[in-house]
Design a protein around this nucleic acid. Structure first.
Lengths: 350, 350
DNA sequence: TTGAAAGCGTTACCAT
DNA sequence: ATGGTAACGCTTTCAA
């Protein structure tokens, strides 16, 4: 597995050396390091001084060998097609996860299987007990990983609603409510022929955002017209195709809710090309609230997702589960927020 | 350090159990696992069968304890202000790093210090010998980490040109050449009053891209006019301010090279708002080639960076250094590519 | 409250 | 080519 040669190693102080310097036994030093209460204050001070002096840091490998815990958590990002990466979702999620994990003294081990072959490797690695738990992000619909890990007794938390009837803990943003508020806003500002460009309908966000669209229509007393629902896939190409079709069938459209900013931006430019004014003729609302939303012309109204907080919650849930195993799956749904900008300004205000 | 309780653990097969089943000694099994040649084929087969049967996976902690290597690599992302994250740079870089590391059987440990306090923790963690080497990305100008790690004998590779006279291995994209090709293209298509919106000039990309702009001007026989160089900071706000100033002083501008797509997109919308046609009146070229470059109106010409390849090279360089220590710093500069789209179409071709 | 000693699972050296 | 046997650095009974 690892045949390459070794390398020069900073000789770190060991527990033994600290014990020697402090004039106590290894066991006592260990107790100090691990915050045991059964150590007299004076000895504790001596030991701490010795630790300080030697710059001692515990050898994680040795500790892990005996405790059978690694104090590290895997984050598994199973990139679907690779295309879904037009936004800085992962950096922000990772930042959220990372800061919470750091605060609780866990290492973040990042696994990004690309090929199906990698996935087997990953599953193997995880079940081999090298990590105490796993955070799973952007799973495909039929990914066997959650079931396998759960069966192996490994605590996991998913990012995003799990497919089917998989009973596991997860954290998600409220896609449905986010979409609902976006469309409700369009209705409130006088739009009546509201189309949507959906995400792929084999993904939870795609499904949930469309449902939010339908919810808002129903609540607003507008009739659901399936020909106003164009299937997109979060990509510019897909959005362009969907919108072209939409405009051909429904030239009277006065608002579009796109299930992603990427698609909304495409819509912005296509609408312009077709001679329609935004928001004069057609209002556009996106989903994601990417940074570029303020750079488009006009600036894009969009649904903001608390991505870092999602990371925080995922890490918190998992670490809690690792520290105190509990078979009951938890779920956390985070609220989204509609950020209103020029692309959906009411007709009264140009 | 870690006082919380343990947790249920999958009891993995051990070397001992495999040895028992295969009817050989632990040492022999170890040799098979590590691909030693000094094992007879028949025994090797027996052992492999036993491994398979038991689903044996080596205990990394135990291995690391004796070999004094962790077979894991840290990726340290010291996010500067947090704003610089308008593009999916990190996911792509991480993907590149991850795949190369996986291919060479190293674990990727991700460290994202946020506060200066975290940085101390990180430095400590790294020098404690828990990883075999570190990949450092997006350092601030005066970050002490490279020096500290190098002094501690830890192999490191930087992503991006190092500040000042720091002598370490690094991988960078050819920002200068990329900018040069962008501006050369503008000159070649008949533009004569070419402005630039720079990045922050205390960062390597900011400096290098401006230099590329100047190179192209010189090569094209155009005189350098510093009032055509507006200071930006990669953000929409900064770009807007810079461009407004620029247009006030030089209403005759017929091309803009923005040091980032984010800024180029802002320029696109501001130029439109000011009544100028792109590319009819003014050509615009960006840098990054973000996915949205194809969704803007008009589509944005931009300099493409091989980010995943950058990750590959970084990982490769580091793992090589870990396996075969060598004090000579290496550097790899990756070529960029100008992707021509509508925003810089020549005047002859509308 | 403290110390002695027994492992944890692996590698690597030394015999055979 | 194979096996026996020390380590590796730490935690954790068990005694004292």
């Amino acid at each position: 597995m690892a045949q390459p040669s070794g390398r020069s190693q900073r000789t770190n102080a060991t527990l033994e050396e600290v014990a020697l310097l402090a004039g106590v036994s290894r066991a006592t030093v260990s107790r100090v390091v691990n915050g045991s209460l059964r150590v007299s204050p004076s000895v504790r001070l001596d030991v701490q001084a010795a630790i300080e002096r030697l710059g001692y840091t515990p050898n994680l490998a040795a500790r892990s060998l005996v405790t059978r815990r690694s104090d590290s958590i895997a984050v598994v990002i199973t990139q679907p097609t690779g295309q879904v990466f037009a936004d800085p979702f992962f950096p922000r999620l990772l930042r959220g996860i990372s800061s919470t994990l750091a605060a609780r003294d866990r290492q973040l081990i990042l696994l990004m299987p690309e090929l199906p072959a990698d996935e087997a490797r990953v599953a193997n690695y995880l079940t081999a007990g090298h990590v105490d738990g796993a955070l799973l992000v952007s799973l495909h619909e039929d990914d066997p990983l959650p079931a396998r890990l759960t069966a192996a007794g490994m605590p996991i938390v998913l990012g995003g609603r799990p497919p089917k009837g998989v009973r596991v803990s997860y954290v998600d943003v409220d896609n449905r409510q986010g979409a609902q508020s976006a469309v409700a806003h369009l209705i409130a500002t006088g739009r009546r022929v509201i189309a949507t460009i959906t995400g792929p309908l084999d993904t939870a966000p795609g499904i949930d955002r469309r449902q939010g669209y339908r919810d808002a229509l129903a609540e607003g007393g507008l009739e659901l017209d399936r020909t106003l629902e164009a299937l997109g896939d979060f990509t510019p190409e897909g959005a362009a195709a969907a919108l072209t079709e939409l405009l051909a069938v429904h030239p009277e459209i006065d608002a579009i809710f796109a299930a992603s900013d990427q698609m909304a931006i495409t819509a912005l430019s296509l609408l312009g090309a077709s001679g329609r004014k935004v928001p004069g003729d057609v209002a556009v609302v996106g989903f994601d609230d990417l940074a570029i939303a303020v750079s488009t012309n006009p600036q894009l109204t969009s649904v903001h997702q608390p991505i870092e907080e999602m990371g925080h919650e995922m890490a918190r849930l998992l670490v809690d589960a690792v520290d105190a195993p509990d078979p009951v799956p938890r779920r956390v749904i985070l609220a989204t927020e509609l950020i209103q900008r020029a692309s959906s300004a009411g007709r009264s205000s140009p």
